[in-house]
Write a protein that binds this DNA or RNA. Structure first.
Lengths: 229, 229
DNA sequence: TAATCAATGATTGTATACGATCTGACGCGC
DNA sequence: GCGCGTCAGATCGTATACAATCATTGATTA
């Protein structure tokens, strides 16, 4: 999504937002096809706007658009999955550090309110929602760090992480049962930059280690995919 | 630009590419207005494609699109300028390290060929071209590091750097006369990861220090801009 | 004279229409 | 029965048309 400092979101951005949420919450699985006409009917707009929305999701890495074939929810490769988490491991600890240095009391309250919603979603078995909220938590930390540029990049990385988790998560239940987020809040609240950085680093490693990123034999779903390029 | 693994660039992407180049080479200054009809005439296509291209440049942070007013080459604020270089300082040293660890002899030849073109452009007084090539040099290192995700992000950062330099560079001549790029090639060629990381870090600091990022009194070009928001 | 308002032209936002390409099924020949 | 070519329907890419919004000019009035 572009940096929407002004000009209320246009209709296209609203569509993009809703599609993004659906993907984040795993209501749309990787590989799912998104037909333009169908989306037009759902939102009651013309293809012009739908196509804008789809293109913007392509930029965010959520969709793959194939010429004359249509838009599909992206299926990150093993390599891309690793890259996403390598990139997060590179920038998020620094973000956590900056957040700790700049946090205000009301920020901490926000974070705690957020973590409660996460737990509520988990308790009610809404795994998709919980996953999305978990991603939002990381973004909130970036907001506190007050680094819009990095925040925007992190948004993309978290989007893709959602796809990676949909594809490569070992145990679909047992999601984020750890109290990593709670530890992070504490460190940030106490303005303990070193701990915040360290907690974030280990939190990401923890998630990464729960992914099944082993090379698989011919994991191609179709000959077509196998021969692309 | 989306990751164009397949499907030859569409016409819209071609337009986006050319506009991007023009901005990178400072043929289009920050704040310049890009009227849709004008671009249509130049490229001989309909507004549909032009609008796609403009939107994609907006995502890359090169343009600002204001509802019902049009597209303008972005003018990064002081804050954004600082953020861009903070972000680069965060990721590029690591990228240089990875490039050093993975470089092959032919990569080094590529880099050296590239640096020659940079010097040639400088010698011929083509400052804009030299600047673009200088950005491409950093991207080539990311290619060698073989990290597509970070490379894509870096592409955006370098795009914005180009705008930052257009706005805040102290001395418009005397660009990159240092031999920082040469030092980087040497370190990467010798697979000396520590040095590569260190050279990149100081190279970025060097550029940053040549920017004039002091707070200025109302540098608004128009009353409208001053009152926005 | 300076300020305000109205109307007009310029420019963008959205929808629709048409042509191109792909997918899948059917039928023909081997 | 199997493979291949061909045709129809579906889907997408691009151009055009119309509606909405904005900016600027010129007239009107205090």
């Amino acid at each position: 999504m572009p940096i929407m400092t002004e000009s209320k979101m246009s209709a296209a951005d609203e569509i993009a937002k809703q599609l993004t949420e659906a993907i984040h919450e795993h209501r749309l699985q990787p590989g799912a096809k998104l037909r333009e006409d169908e989306i037009c009917d759902i939102f009651g707009v013309s293809r012009t706007l739908v196509r804008q929305a789809l293109r913007s999701l392509e930029f965010e890495g959520l969709l793959t658009i194939q010429k004359n074939r249509g838009a599909f929810v992206a299926k990150p490769s093993l390599t891309e999955a690793r890259e996403v988490f390598q990139a997060r491991s590179l920038i998020e600890p620094s973000i956590a550090r900056m957040a700790a240095e700049r946090s205000k009391p009301e920020d901490i309250q926000e974070l705690e309110k957020h973590i409660k919603r996460e737990h509520a979603a988990l308790d009610q078995g809404e795994a998709g929602l919980a996953l999305k909220l978990s991603g939002d938590f990381h973004l909130k930390i970036a907001e506190i760090a007050d680094q819009e540029t990095l925040e925007q990049f992190l948004r993309q990385l978290i989007s893709r992480s959602s796809l990676v988790i949909a594809l490569y998560w070992r145990r679909r239940n047992a999601l984020c049962e750890s109290n990593a987020h709670h530890d992070l809040i504490t460190a940030i609240g106490e303005r303990d930059a070193d701990s915040a950085e360290e907690f974030m680093k280990s939190h990401l490693l923890d998630i990464y280690s729960q992914l099944d990123l082993q090379e698989r034999d011919g994991g191609f779903t179709s000959l077509r995919d196998a021969l692309r390029q």
